[in-house]
């Protein structure tokens, strides 16, 4: 039988909480004993999604970010949701090096990294309503892990 487990955290949109989100994901996935590289990939993708929510979604204003993570056997699904300004053009936002904030020295690599480090990514966004990023990754469990 495949064991399922899900968790949700909601936190203030402060950049300091990016580290908190990474720590929570790491702790939640610890029992699956993921490969070091897989864990690093997931941490980077989470960091990118949460940074986007804080910097672009709320533009550093007050707001809250909701992150959920679901484990279904060795399949991981992570969603990062904000109720911020939304994305005007999702296809453009996904282009490597495209950024709406070049003056703030944003690299424009956020969505590219999420795509490179996760197996699947789905973005839904509504202007003035917010953005939801769903990312999936299949872990390759190591010998000896349950």
């Amino acid at each position: 039988m495949i064991r399922e487990q899900e968790m949700t955290i909601r936190f203030a949109a402060y950049p300091e909480n990016e580290q908190f989100a990474r720590i929570v994901i790491t702790a939640f996935l610890m029992d699956l004993n993921p490969l070091v590289d897989e864990m690093a990939d997931i941490k980077t993708a989470v960091s990118e999604a949460v940074t986007n929510a804080i910097i672009h979604g709320y533009e550093n204003c007050m707001g809250e970010v909701t992150m959920t993570c679901k484990k279904q056997g060795d399949l991981i699904t992570i969603t990062v949701l904000d109720e911020g300004c939304g994305i005007a053009d999702i296809a453009r936002a996904r282009e490597p090096f495209f950024t709406t904030k070049p003056e703030a020295e944003r690299s424009g690599m956020g969505f590219s990294f999420m795509e490179m480090f996760m197996d699947e990514i789905h973005i839904t966004s509504e202007r003035g309503q917010g953005t939801c990023v769903e990312m999936k990754k299949q872990l390759h469990l190591q010998e000896g892990s349950s």
Partner: peptide, 13 residues
Amino acid sequence: EFMDSSGIGMLIG
């Protein structure tokens, strides 16, 4: 041990 795209932006700058 860890760097995300915010670090890249800072380095390019």
